[in-house]
């Protein structure tokens, strides 16, 4: 059975904007799937429907046998621990230190009293430091997050997501706020972590080259609908071109 099974997800925003018109995706244990589409195609909404940062109107999301869409609030919070999310705008808490940002990945499982005093468990602190070393920001752990460069911030975002010991990584346009060279470094880092730790990733991207280079499979999204779903190796250029029809 697939690790993540999304079926018939629909979402219309309160503004009347239709984001998703019934999308199915399934994702196996160790693959990297790129969701390719233009901005406005619904890919960010799709990722947020998986952990219900955006509440889908209908459809189901099954993660590791758990029906996410049916969970109540506290069960949903528990389920979210299994899904690490990495954001386009990094979404770090700027006034906290790098280490505190990374450790905020444990908030789902740590006690409320500890979180009031920002007193993280020593073993979590140690694991957070090891993750910082792994993503290459160990020298900056005591700096405030707003003192870092874009690439370094995204590394903090990656470490924060890994801190959750996720079963899957949901990655939303990770390189769109970075220049191409730094973006490639970040993608290299994520794909090597995914391979080494066996964590599957669902990455939304709008860049065909990135999708081709880093994914095992590409899902094309257009106007809230899935228009193709192929192994990256076999995906034909015609399909890829179709995505950009609207633009040309």
């Amino acid at each position: 059975m697939a690790l993540l099974e999304i079926s018939q997800i629909r979402k219309t925003y309160a503004t009347g904007e239709v984001a998703l018109r019934g999308v199915d995706i399934s994702l196996n244990g160790e693959e990297v799937v790129a969701v390719l589409g233009l901005s406005g195609s619904g890919k960010s909404t799709l990722l947020r429907c998986i952990n219900r940062l955006v509440e889908p109107d209908s459809g189901t999301v099954m993660l590791d046998g758990v029906n996410i869409t049916k969970l109540n609030k506290s069960a949903l919070r528990k389920a979210r621990r299994n899904m690490g999310m990495i954001f386009q705008e990094f979404n770090l808490v700027e006034r906290l230190t790098v280490l505190e940002n990374v450790l905020s990945g444990t908030l789902g499982s740590s006690g409320t009293l500890r979180s009031i005093f920002r007193a993280f468990k020593p073993e979590d602190v140690k694991r957070g430091m090891a993750l910082c070393a792994r993503v290459g920001i160990i020298d900056h752990i005591r700096k405030r997050a707003d003192q870092l460069s874009g690439g370094q911030r995204q590394r903090v975002g990656i470490a924060r997501a890994l801190m959750q010991r996720p079963k899957i990584l949901l990655v939303d346009e990770p390189t769109s706020s970075l220049d191409p060279k730094i973006g490639a470094e970040v993608m290299d880092l994520m794909s090597s972590i995914s391979k080494e730790d066996g964590i599957p990733m669902l990455i939304s991207v709008h860049d065909v080259q990135l999708a081709k280079k880093y994914s095992d499979r590409i899902v094309g999204l257009q106007n809230g609908l899935k228009i193709f779903d192929d192994r990256t190796a076999t995906v034909d250029s015609e399909s890829l071109d179709r995505i950009y029809d609207m633009a040309s």
């Binding site: 389920a79 899904m83 999310m85 700027e94 789902g108 979180s115």
Partner: peptide
């Protein structure tokens, strides 16, 4: 809203979201 979204995505409840997402922004 970005950092709040990120804290929510870790599975934190409303109190922790407030402490880590809202308080650091409002404090200064």
């Amino acid at each position: 809203p970005g950092p709040i979204e990120a804290i929510e995505a870790t599975g934190a409840g409303p109190i922790k979201v407030f402490l880590f997402g809202v308080v650091p922004q409002v404090f200064p």
